[in-house]
Design a protein around this nucleic acid. Structure first.
Length: 803
RNA sequence: GCGGAAGUGGCGAAAUAGGUAAACGCACUAGAUUCAGAUUCUAGCGAAAUUUAUUUCAUUGCAGGUUCAAAUCCUGUCUUCCGCACCA
């Protein structure tokens, strides 16, 4: 028999699969159920395929292959998410066009992917920077616009006087990462998508999904729903402002108010503020900080009093001083808070810094820190210092105070979300142009469908510009166009979309990738959605997932998507670090190139090892020796040909081992526990090597079980053994549960909770017999005297005797 | 800071419902095969003792608790990783 020549075998089968179009899939396959297995498409960086990609691709490939063996019609597509900052940066560095960089990278990526033997339908490949694709991204944006969900709004951007608008990533502790100039927060008019309109649905409909619990929590926390009361405070000097609070029960404890420094009210009060200079300085200081810096709790609270401004507490007409402070954010709630230092830690610290009195209104200890709602809610704790509400429980007071304020017409119940609308404009070259035209007379008009796509013009210079406008704004003949409404001269929008845009709907395009009339036909979407299993990195479980769900929900509402939730389940792979426990990077020299491994051990060994190396969702360090172990294992499977005898059913000798493996491998793939699936296969293999005998029927089962992970060797062995059935038509082995029932069981025996040995009992033997048996066993009976106090017997699992 | 996840041998890890902790694999040690190396095979691999087959002890980040029984449940605590809105 020839030795296991993985190189020859893998090339052979990859060619056959490609030639046969083995994994091409139709939207409808008579007699078969559809199943959609989706993996986040890669960003085609110049670094090429990483062992981390291999981990998730082979895992999901195994899932897809198993589903096929179970008789399902499986969609397992692949594409590239190609727009974004990284390609643009590389292009600038290499003095090439991003288009060139991207197509070069995609080429390498595909070659590498093909070496893995994935069961991908390459005819459905998509690429977000292909005009045939982004035509539909633009069309979808226009639908948002037409339904009032896209509009221009003023937002803050990071602005560097030399480099223009910067991404957060390009800001390092308040300075530009390129030129180290100070960054300021500059207001800019940008397109936003009104995602907050969907906040409620995005929370509620999680019920329909099967995501891992922590992924749901992540989504819920990001949306950050809180129900509270919005209260109006009069200003003694004239005017008023509103605050939002979830703790209205503490309203008698207010000793000051804090406005966000950007709150428009501050400027409108300019004439009445006696220390305006000081206030102005504080505002400009704040504009240099990001939200993140501003919310850090461990730094000293800063703020500035608005001298001459007094607010009136509506419950008791008390006069309250007003401050501005950067720990209050303008874009959450109303950009103003009532400060109750006794019951909010941030207010407590601020009060200490500014020497403001503290009034306790809820019973408890507030000497060293605030008594916050997490410690007082739901514990029957009572109010104090709150006029007629004193003595009520917190919960009761919450209701009564709200009622009173509503009656007085100074408050209303409000639901707030932390989630903000999605800022959708970028002042960058490498993205989808936003398909809008501005006309002096007609305002913003979408580009007519017939003129889509609005293609990205090829340009010489696509670097960000100092004035903070998009590079496209410098191309006059592109910018100047005609209003689609009145035909008069008008200007194109020059901002482009964020990298998230294309990935928000790509899973729909896979269903109908060549359609030039629609982004995807409803029939094709009905055939495949919702996605059965969606895999991606942990770093995408909040935002990308939320964006994609949002787009789909919108399309569902306007009748273009058949489902309200696009993904049934969501799982995440853990990242693979270098062998030294540090992220792989060229500069550290700890990068492992999958191609090197494939050359030495083959794709099947690599696939197997990456599935075996640890729990799929956990971070692991790369280990050079690991692949070798899987190569050994595959060799053992190969060498089993030497033990082969004829047979058409499972032998008694292997009945238990084989059926255990069938059960374990099947369940584990379904539960994404690939590592234990493989260890089950190894145990089976060890059992076979003990008896050195296997019949053809049994060998077929083993090959089927291993085929999702190591498809090349599986098909090769199948062919070599000349089994009657063809591999293409074969199906997943069926389990004989009765083979798993054991007649004799080794029962662990504990005495006083300590393991003292095992005894062999028959299935379901009764307790008294077992105790008699233990008494006869010398090794065990020596621990027993006559004073057995209690016996705990869990049938067929354990017996614990207390003496 | 806020939110999420995770801490088990020398290493990667496993452990349906609280029920024999360490399956499976790596590395290592000894032996066999080999001119030698690689491969392969056989045995060992928490600690200590020993009559060599058994005994004792320890053990799932740390400190407590619940329970006949805890890696698993509860309270507190420490550490690491991920996300935080213009990176995708």
């Amino acid at each position: 028999m020839e030795p296991y020549d993985f190189k020859k075998i893998e090339e052979k089968w990859q060619n056959i699969w490609e030639k046969e179009k083995r994994y091409k899939v139709n939207n409808i396959e008579p007699g078969k159920k559809n199943s959609y297995v989706l993996i986040e498409f890669p960003y085609p960086s110049g670094k090429g395929l990483h062992v981390g990609h291999v981990r998730s691709y082979t895992a999901l490939d195994a899932v897809a292959r198993k589903k096929r063996l179970e008789g399902k019609n499986v969609l397992f597509p692949m594409g590239c998410d190609a727009f974004g900052l990284e390609a643009e940066r590389t292009a600038i560095k290499e003095h090439k066009l991003p288009q060139e960089i991207v197509s070069r990278n995609i080429q390498t990526f595909k070659e590498q992917l093909k070496m893995l033997g994935l069961s991908i339908d390459w005819e459905r490949e998509i690429n977000t920077c292909d005009p045939n694709y982004y035509k539909w991204t633009q069309w979808l944006f226009i639908q948002f616009f037409k339904h009032g969900l896209a509009e221009k709004q003023e937002t803050l951007v990071n602005f560097c006087p030399n480099c223009g608008v910067l991404a957060n990533e390009e800001v390092e502790s308040g300075k530009c990462c390129q030129c180290h100039e100070e960054i300021t927060q500059k207001p800019k008019s940008q397109w936003i998508l009104k995602m907050t309109k969907y906040a409620e649905k995005l929370i509620n409909d999680l019920k329909e999904t099967n995501y891992l619990e922590h992924i749901k929590t992540n989504q819920i926390n990001w949306i950050g729903k809180s129900e509270g009361v919005q209260v109006k405070f009069e200003i003694k000097q004239g005017g008023s402002f509103e605050i939002f609070t979830t703790c209205i029960e503490t309203i008698y404890g207010i000793t000051f108010m804090v406005l966000a420094p950007e709150n428009k009210l501050v400027k409108s009060l300019k004439d009445k503020i006696k220390n305006w200079k000081e206030v102005e300085e504080y505002i400009s200081l704040t504009s240099k900080k990001s939200d993140f810096e501003r919310q850090e709790l461990n730094k000293t609270k800063t703020g500035c009093k608005l001298e001459g401004i007094i607010a009136i507490n509506p419950v008791n007409n008390k006069e309250i001083p007003v401050y501005i402070g950067d720990f209050v954010l303008a874009n959450y709630g109303t950009g103003a808070v009532m400060a109750v230092p006794a019951h909010d830690q941030r207010d407590f610290e601020f009060a200490k810094v500014k020497n403001i009195p503290i009034i306790q209104v809820i019973e408890g200890d507030v000497t060293n820190c605030a008594l916050e709602k997490t410690s007082y809610l739901g514990k029957n704790i009572k109010l104090m210092n709150s006029e007629e509400f004193s003595g009520m429980t917190v919960e009761e007071a919450k209701e009564k105070i709200t009622e009173k304020l509503i009656q007085c017409n100074v408050a209303k119940k409000v639901t707030n979300y932390k989630m903000r609308d999605w800022v959708f404009s970028r002042q960058r070259y490498w993205g989808e142009p936003i398909p809008m035209i501005y006309c002096e007379k007609c305002g913003w008009q979408p580009v007519p469908d017939s003129q889509l796509p609005v293609e990205l013009p090829i340009v010489n210079s696509y670097e960000t510009s100092k004035d903070g406008e998009s590079p496209l704004s410098k191309i006059d003949n592109w910018v100047n166009t005609k209003c689609p409404c009145c035909g008069m001269p008008a200007k194109r929008e020059t901002d482009t979309m964020p990298g998230w845009a294309g990935s928000s709907w790509y899973f729909m395009r896979y269903c109908d990738p060549k359609n030039d009339k629609e982004f995807a036909s409803l029939d094709s979407l009905k055939a495949w959605l919702p996605v059965d299993i969606y895999n991606g990195g942990n770093e995408h479980t909040t935002r990308h997932l939320l964006y994609a769900r949002f787009w789909n929900k919108f399309l569902y509402d306007i009748g273009l998507s058949p489902v309200s939730e696009p993904f049934k389940t969501r799982i995440s792979q853990g990242i693979i670090l270098g062998s030294n426990g540090i992220k792989m990077s060229k500069s550290l020299g700890n990068v492992v190139d999958p191609r090197d491994i494939i050359k030495e051990y083959g794709a099947d060994s690599l696939r197997l090892w990456e599935s075996f190396m640890g729990d799929y969702s956990e971070t692991v360090n790369w280990n050079d020796n690991g692949v070798k172990s899987c190569y050994r294992f595959l060799n053992k499977i190969w060498e089993m040909q030497n033990f082969l005898i004829e047979g058409d059913k499972i032998s008694n000798e292997l009945s238990f081992s084989l059926n255990s493996a069938i059960k374990k491998v099947g369940n584990d793939i379904d539960e994404n526990k690939f590592n234990t699936a493989i260890s089950a296969l190894m145990i089976l293999c060890n059992d076979i090597y003990k008896i050195k005998k296997i019949n053809t029927f049994e060998y077929q089962i083993i090959i089927k079980l291993i085929s999702p992970f190591a498809p090349h060797i599986a098909e090769e062995l199948w062919e070599r053994c000349k089994f009657k059935e063809s591999f293409k038509e074969t199906c997943w082995p069926t389990l004989d549960d009765s083979a798993l029932i054991k007649n004799t069981i080794n029962l662990p025996v504990q005495i006083n909770g300590k393991m003292r040995g095992t005894i062999s009992i028959t299935n379901n033997q009764n307790q008294d017999e077992i105790i008699d048996q233990i008494k006869k066993e010398k090794n065990l009976s020596k621990y027993l005297d006559n004073s057995i106090k209690k016996v705990i017997y869990v049938p067929n699992r354990i017996i614990n005797i207390i003496i």
